[in-house]
């Protein structure tokens, strides 16, 4: 694999990561519509307490 390909790979990867982080931060900043602040997923099946939707998590 030559350097041009390696460079393209890193560029592509970097731009994807950049787009993702940009969208993620933008999403966090957009406020939820009124009435939606306290939504909790009706989800108590798996005891995955590390899942962001688990009922025991407080909104941070």
């Amino acid at each position: 694999m030559d350097f041009a390909q390696l460079f393209l790979a890193i560029l592509f990867f970097g731009s994807l990561v950049g787009i993702y982080i940009f969208l993620f931060l933008k999403n966090k900043k957009t406020p939820k519509p009124e009435g939606c602040e306290n939504l909790k997923a009706d989800c108590e099946g798996c005891k995955d307490i590390y899942c962001p939707n688990h009922p025991t998590k407080e909104e941070s």
Binding site: L16, Y20, L23, T30, K32, P33, G35, C36, K40, N53
Partner: peptide, 25 residues
């Protein structure tokens, strides 16, 4: 992951009713 973020943002802005029912998932 990016598409999920984009969809959530789109729903928040355009359709609160839809966001209420499926945004959390």
């Amino acid at each position: 992951a990016s598409l999920v973020q984009l969809t959530e943002m789109f729903l928040k802005k355009s359709s609160p009713a839809l966001y209420k029912s499926l945004g959390v998932y």
